[in-house]
Design a protein around this nucleic acid. Sequence first.
DNA 1: CCGGCACTTTGACACGGATCAAAGGCCAGA
DNA 2: TCTGGCCTTTGATCCGTGTCAAAGTGCCGG
Lengths: 247, 247
Amino acid sequence: MRGATTPELFDSCSSCPIRHRAVCARCEPDELDQLEDIKYYRTFEAGQPIVWAGDRMEFVASVVAGVATLTQTMEDGRRQMVGLLLPSDFVGRPGRETAKFDVTAVNTVTLCCFRRKPFEHMLETTPHVAQRLLEMALDELDAAREWMLLLGRKTAREKIASLIAIIARRASIDGADTTDGVSVELPLTREAMSDYLGLTLETVSRQISALKKDSVILLDGNRRVLIPDMRALLDETGDDDDGGMLN
Amino acid sequence: MRGATTPELFDSCSSCPIRHRAVCARCEPDELDQLEDIKYYRTFEAGQPIVWAGDRMEFVASVVAGVATLTQTMEDGRRQMVGLLLPSDFVGRPGRETAKFDVTAVNTVTLCCFRRKPFEHMLETTPHVAQRLLEMALDELDAAREWMLLLGRKTAREKIASLIAIIARRASIDGADTTDGVSVELPLTREAMSDYLGLTLETVSRQISALKKDSVILLDGNRRVLIPDMRALLDETGDDDDGGMLN
DNA sequence: CCGGCACTTTGACACGGATCAAAGGCCAGA
DNA sequence: TCTGGCCTTTGATCCGTGTCAAAGTGCCGG
């Protein structure tokens, strides 16, 4: 998941065709050449599996465009999302032979893939890549821990409010005007939201309706959400801070 | 949290007084000198707070002995454990000024602390330390994701069985005989278990009683658990694999 | 324009776990 | 040995969310 990384890093390496934080920030030209040799792009359509848990992983990758999910499934079909991958997020784990989770495209996804073995080699020889990856992994760990609080202790209503707040925050990273009403496109179906939140899709639907009835949110179609008052939404999340949404 | 790191790494640097994976494996003598300068030990008694969320963090640390927890608390008192820290686990985050979670000693805890600023400096100049920390962070991320499945989708009974299995696995890393019955000391109170699992302590108690009634576990006092048949316990966890418990 | 399909909403009811309450162990200190 | 406090167990009841069912909505292709 994308954490609180500085936008400058993202753009600091404009000569790199990847233009991607994970491997691009602070890259030297010869390192970029090295990357060029081992990288390739792949595109996946909405709903398509990217990897299945247990598959052999030949690559690690960066999400360039689109949204993908990381999920775990139990034998009887119970499913839990454990990662939501947005552009700039990293897929795969250096040093791991077989995937541990299912990765699925939510909409059209473009990945910038790196062959795993050479990428691992580069990790060992190019210190700042390991440092950058460490930073990203720690951001994800923080996000995972917030998510654990949500899963373990929040009510269905708080979960929905939190999810909308999380998506709104990410969508408005480059500071869209927050003063009077924010509009967000939910990239997920009700079912995917339920997998994220540890609920059923019926409960998700009911709680969204309830928040609408109470004018905390407005719906435009059933994917676009209008937030008339961000403060009011944040009050519904159960969090004591604003998650960096307010000034 | 401790992941599937090789025991060799732990012992590979016997000259290092820290004898600790995070910073010790593959250390060169001069790097060890550098570490010596910035390290100090601290001990905390059972129940004592180690840091509060929001506190300024002057150090990062390794757990040398004892058990500590990472928890988040909501305004109304709802609490969720988000990390269980055992010996060799890492505390704190390089680059972070203020703690994000409460850290509490469960029993007597000894930390090997490193002053944060110099440690961060060493991270930048000593590549293999960043690589090692990356590996540890990714292990923790995997553990956090398993935990998310537990919190979001497992029943109370499955949660309890999973927790006992997790503790049993860690306790018997150096291959205690698994063939006929394993005995594990639970380091946590029922309340701490409930914080781990996203349950109430009453439910924890009831489900432990139920597993006992069904002879999946036996109790010796109420902290020591005997597992007559590991396979039977693992069947109760809802997981499809054995989590590396069986041969 | 219509039909079909996937997604969503709403309703009725069931059930697992929370809540409230009280009693039972266990250990440290007097 | 007795006492007080903390942890744990057990019981009764309640409520939030899951489950099952059916109807509504919107979109794409024919």
